[in-house]
């Protein structure tokens, strides 16, 4: 068997011809792309349906999504040390504060967003822009239980024996437990009263589940009342589950989901175009419609009747929390929950 030998010149000529052919045959490309971390599930589906086409038509930018929960994004970005695996974060307040503390974001330049003027005050800061709101309260099955009035009802009969709980792993779980603690004399930084009260009724609690399994547990009738956000309630109602949202007497809790440019991202320009598309009125309006059920942040969007407020400014009255105070305490709370509530 003989081997054909190439001279170096022949090799380079062939390589150049191949590269040239590839370049000519390449279809028209978009102006660029941006890789965004995205919550799996509802968010990813909604963004694929509405944000991807809107960003493409408005700015000719392709959006690639990496499905990751907020905590996973922080862990990945930190592990990557300066070479972020994505250009844009989407985060809840707790992980957002961690990201700021650990220097994972580029400084945010609000003037690069055309739609920034349509957001209510306080939705943009030096680190990112708010793209959606979440309102947390009580979700219950009206066919099986009377309507609860306050957070304390969760720990009373008849509700407690049908209560489904989650721990401090999620933002909505953490703020709900803080609110329960507050009703018994606790505060944002003191959840001791919650642990005292829950111990008294622990054997009655119907389910203490993983956050991801809560909708399934509710749907299966394992629990009939739980703390949850309006988006989950709307999604379950869309599947014909008997569930209603209640704003507790002390007020529903609101928190915001924000987007940030990853430190060291090379697609900063496209990331801003992406953010601007997300907060634009048509996209926000589309995201609000079922089955997505987002709470919009753009003032030009007419709010759906099912939302727990008539205007975005009303959200200023909702209960808010300072996550820079909560974050340092959360590890100890989780440990305590594992020891006292889990066992």
């Amino acid at each position: 068997m003989t081997h054909t030998r190439f001279t170096r010149r022949q090799f380079f000529a062939a390589a150049a011809a191949t590269a040239g052919a590839l370049a000519i045959g390449r279809p028209a490309r978009a102006k660029g792309s941006v890789t965004a971390a995205m919550y799996p599930g509802t968010w990813e589906e909604a963004f694929r349906a509405h944000v991807v086409p809107a960003l493409k038509s408005a700015h000719d930018v392709d959006l690639e999504m990496t499905p990751l929960f907020a905590v996973d994004q922080i862990a990945k970005a930190q592990a990557a040390r300066g070479a972020p695996p994505f250009d844009a974060f989407v985060l809840d307040p707790g992980p957002r504060v961690t990201g700021i503390d650990r220097g994972l974001f580029e400084k945010f330049e609000a003037r690069r967003l055309k739609n920034v003027g349509r957001l209510p005050a306080g939705m943009v800061d030096d680190w990112g822009v708010t793209v959606a709101a979440q309102v947390v309260g009580i979700g219950y099955n009206p066919k099986k239980l009377p309507r609860p009035k306050s957070w304390t009802d969760l720990l009373k009969d008849p509700w407690v024996s049908r209560l489904g709980m989650t721990g401090f792993q999620t933002t909505y779980g953490t703020v709900s437990i803080i609110e329960i603690a507050k009703q018994f004399g606790g505060s944002e930084t003191n959840v001791e009263p919650f642990f005292v009260e829950i111990k008294k009724v622990l054997s009655k609690v119907a389910a203490i589940g993983a956050p991801a399994s809560m909708p399934a547990l509710f749907q299966q009738g394992q629990c009939d009342i739980t703390y949850t956000n309006t988006q989950t309630v709307a999604t379950l109602r869309g599947r014909d589950v008997d569930i209603e949202f209640v704003k507790p007497e002390s007020g529903a809790v609101a928190f915001f989901t924000t987007m940030h440019v990853a430190k060291g991202s090379r697609e900063g320009e496209n990331a801003y175009k992406y953010f601007d598309t997300v907060i634009s009125a048509p996209v926000q309006s589309a995201l609000m419609q079922p089955p997505n059920n987002f709470i919009p942040v753009n003032r030009d969007v007419k709010l759906a009747a099912a939302l727990p407020m008539a205007s975005l400014d009303e959200m200023a009255k909702f209960v808010r929390h300072d996550w820079s105070k909560i974050n340092p305490l959360r590890a100890a709370w989780i440990e305590r929950f594992n020891k006292e509530v889990a066992k």
Binding site: M165, T166, G167, A207, I208, G209, A210, A212, S213, F337, N338, V341, A342, K343
Partner: peptide
């Protein structure tokens, strides 16, 4: 373990 055990079993 997490989905079936929930937060009751760690």
């Amino acid at each position: 373990q997490f989905v079936i055990g929930g937060n009751r079993l760690v």
